[in-house]
Amino acid sequence: MDSRPLGTTGFDVSEIALGTWQLGGSWGSVTNDEAYDAIEAALDAGIDFLDTADVYGDGDSERRIGDVLADRDDDVTVATKAGRRLDPHEADGYNRENLERFVYRSRDNLGVDSLDLVQLHCPPREVYYQPEVFDALSELRDAGKIDHYGVSVEKVEEGLKAIEYDGVETVQIIFNPLRQRPAELFFREAARRNVGVIVRVPLASGLLTGALSADAEFAENDHRNFNRHGEAFDVGETFAGIPFEDGLEAADSIQEVVPEGVSLAQFTLRWILSFDAVSTVIPGSKTPEHIRDNVAAASLPPLSADQFERVEEVYNAYAREHVHHRW
């Protein structure tokens, strides 16, 4: 699997990485052994970038990553996130004291002296207009508590604002065939400023795996159940914000141009990697087999012009009206 530079961090990271939200919570229950097996499978398959957050399972995801890495000698970059532990989750809480507290807790969870990359975890919009927040992150970096920092955003506009700060080296953003707006302006600006782009929710919470149907049922503690309409957090995090039924129809339509022997998930990941501004993609899975299948997507041949055109047609028909101007 090829690597790509992660902005100005100095890290070269695998094109396919592993998102570990599902190894902590909000995707149904997962045991330690299941989580360890998934992380091990990712590392064995060539993944060297893991994305987590301090709120995934109240730290379980970070701790599980730390446990696995402690027993291995891999050269792995671990990105975590901070801010969502605030209650209430308000802009005023993004101050030096709280950020330092979150960073110290993540260091303990991961068992490291300095965090490779810390990302503000989809903070309120006002945070992007508070330079003192980014000054605090710079101070933590200068103190040797974190090596680099970035942001995870909900909206394109937030990403564009964030990269005005010199210290922001990465932006994590939702991008997939059902959420295409970042490719219009944000990718161009990120590339111009040499900012690393981490793509999350690449498979639209499973819609773009082809494995879901209209009668799919999700566990009570799975966000695809409890956040279907944005009851718990931004609805754009669940099924990429597109109504479930429309998403199923869109997935079926894209499937029509997926080559034989290639899964819809692999096709989707290959489509995302076609954009040069993308540094890495972080699909999540609890299943070693799925993780290995995701990695295989990086080796697929480039998509054809006809395939790109079909994906654009599907976006315009099923997704654009729901998501384009919202995120």
Rank of each mutant, 00 (worst) to 15 (best):
T238C: 12
L212D: 02
R228C: 09
E249V: 10
L208P: 01
R193S: 12
A265R: 00
N225A: 12
E260K: 10
R200A: 04
E256V: 03
A250E: 07
S213L: 06
E217R: 15
R228N: 07
V197N: 01
A216N: 07
E217S: 15
G236H: 07
N194T: 11
V258L: 04
E237L: 15
D246Y: 08
V235P: 00
I198W: 01
T209V: 04
A251S: 09
E249M: 14
T238N: 09
E249K: 14
L207E: 06
D215M: 13
V257T: 12
L208F: 03
V197C: 04
P202C: 13
F233E: 11
D215L: 13
Q255R: 15
D234T: 10
S205H: 10
S263P: 07
A191V: 02
W271E: 02
V201W: 00
G196S: 05
A219L: 06
R270F: 04
A232L: 13
A232P: 02
V258S: 02
E260F: 07
V197H: 08
G261C: 14
E237S: 15
A240G: 08
E231D: 12
N221Q: 08
G241A: 14
A251M: 04
S205R: 11
E245F: 13
V257W: 10
R224M: 11
L208Y: 04
N227E: 13
G196C: 10
D215T: 15
A240I: 04
E220K: 10
P243S: 12
I198V: 15
T209Q: 02
A191Q: 12
N221P: 02
F267W: 08
F233N: 09
R192L: 12
T209P: 01
R193M: 07
A191N: 09
A214R: 14
T209D: 03
R192Y: 10
P202F: 11
A219R: 02
E220A: 15
G236W: 03
E220H: 11
A250G: 10
H223C: 07
G230Q: 10
A219M: 06
A191C: 02
L212E: 02
G247E: 01
F218V: 03
V235W: 01
A190R: 00
L248T: 01
R200Y: 09
T268G: 01
R228W: 11
G241D: 10
D222M: 12
I198F: 06
A240F: 08
A232N: 15
L208N: 00
F233G: 09
L248H: 07
S263M: 05
N225F: 09
L203R: 04
N225T: 08
S213R: 15
F226V: 02
G210M: 00
G261L: 13
I242M: 12
V199G: 00
R224T: 08
A191F: 03
G236T: 05
V197A: 05
F267I: 03
V201Y: 01
A190Y: 01
E231L: 07
E220G: 08
H229Q: 12
G196L: 08
T268L: 05
N227Q: 13
S213H: 14
A190E: 01
G261E: 14
D246Q: 13
V195E: 04
V201R: 00
